[in-house]
Design a binder for these strands. Structure first.
Lengths: 249, 249
DNA sequence: CCCAATTTGTTCGTATGTATA
DNA sequence: TTATACATACGAACAAATTGG
């Protein structure tokens, strides 16, 4: 159970400041699933011993990871790997707000699953070679039975080997949760571009709205640790009764 | 030039941790325009003396304010008040689809200025009473001569006394810069809701596009220090050649 | 061009307080 | 109550970047 790694060598290691090297090694441990989302990581004292650094240096590394929403600290309890997409956090990346500013939580329905190959645009977004094997998943999210959002998701078959329509349908929780528990892939960050579009016949059908109405078109890339892209998702959103929200500082 | 204030009293002041009390006082000094955006604030040593705290406590306070994008530190130079929304920063989240092109800032044209009273919705967004006196400013932003974005801005007359069409037209820099230099109001944070809409005749005209095409409709509230709302802005954006961008972690 | 002063960045720790189990 | 864990506050010593003489 104990790591044989004794201490870090500040000079030889990488030229990075010690605390950044500690950060790097913690993120590496997270990538290797040594600790999973929700787990408590070792105490500061133990980590100091493991990395051979002072408490101040370790705390600086942890501070950064907390600021990046990768770890969470609780006084008196310990430090934990951040859990994304649970409960109200489910829509941390998808803040739909109704007219009264209340946050709402759509239901997810899987409407399609197939295998294929990445075209040039998708490959670029996911960091794959053109023609790489991919999955395509189509979904519809609804609120109170009313379709609101149609998604077309692309995943690399290499990153998610053996994924099937059954697994997607029978997932116990969210898709991101499936990525985590079945493949150890944690989504910690996204980037999106937003445009306005007209609902064509297909999206109008999927969204249960008349064709020709305006919809939001969101292209999203989801990233895991170390900025690795893991999912590409194009969403079409009916914003007649909800709006997309964000805060920026 | 010297502040007569000697030290903080950790017990008597507020029950807050010392470093948060230091933060509060720094933000207060910023609100009072003791230091303006772009200014260098006193060195750590001087601030330690001013607040009567240790270097570690002061640095923790500064760390927080840097993380909140309120201050910026430069090794060897000093610590500075962050400058928001200057040049391309205003469009930090507005990417050109065809690549960089960051060199062509959107040009701002003022197309309307009037006085009026806040309706219920606007009053709520700006924290005003319904019927409070307000200004309305209409603008169009263009890139390379092509209109891209039409804005309708609402400001409180109380917050911006004596604002005139002349001052708005003859501003030396951006609108946010005008808020800062003429009224000491610094925009440090925004919240936005995004919806899709159809360009009606008015917006089609202002955007130089055929009516009936989809546009993004963005409702933005801009905040100063201490979460005070200072501006409400509704934008209509032609996204045929550009997309709205954001990153979330 | 180099040097010295200034300023922040990094690393090291100690002592004490607060929250939790 | 006790032990553990993180939070706060203190400060020393040296490194790195910048500026001005």
């Amino acid at each position: 159970m104990q790591s044989p790694m004794p201490t870090l060598d500040p000079a030889a290691s990488s030229g990075l400041p010690l605390y950044k090297e500690v950060k790097r090694q913690i993120v590496q441990a997270l990538s290797a699933a040594e600790w999973k989302p929700g787990d408590m990581i070792p105490s500061e004292k133990q980590l100091c011993a493991r990395f051979g650094v002072s408490i101040g240096t370790l705390r600086k590394a942890i501070d950064d990871l907390v600021a990046e929403n990768i770890l969470v600290r609780h006084q008196g309890r310990g430090t934990f790997v951040a859990v994304h997409h649970r409960g109200p956090r489910l829509f941390r990346f998808f803040n739909l707000v109704d007219g009264e500013g209340q946050r709402t939580y759509p239901q997810l329905e899987i409407t399609g699953f197939s295998k294929g190959r990445a075209d040039k645009a998708v490959a670029a977004r996911l960091g794959l070679a053109t023609g790489a094997r991919i999955y395509r998943i189509a979904t519809v999210r609804s609120i109170e039975g009313k379709p609101l959002l149609a998604e077309d998701i692309t995943l690399s078959q290499d990153l998610f080997p053996g994924l099937t329509a059954e697994k997607v349908h029978q997932r116990p929780s969210t898709l991101y949760n499936l990525y985590q528990v079945a493949y150890g892939i944690n989504v910690v960050r996204i980037e999106e571009g937003v445009q306005a579009a007209i609902a064509d016949d297909e999206y109008a059908r999927r969204l249960g709205m008349p064709p020709g109405l305006p919809v939001l078109q969101v292209r999203r890339v989801a990233f895991s640790y170390n900025d690795q892209p893991v999912e590409y998702r194009v969403s079409h959103i009916d914003t007649r009764n909800h709006e997309y929200f964000r805060a920026v500082s």
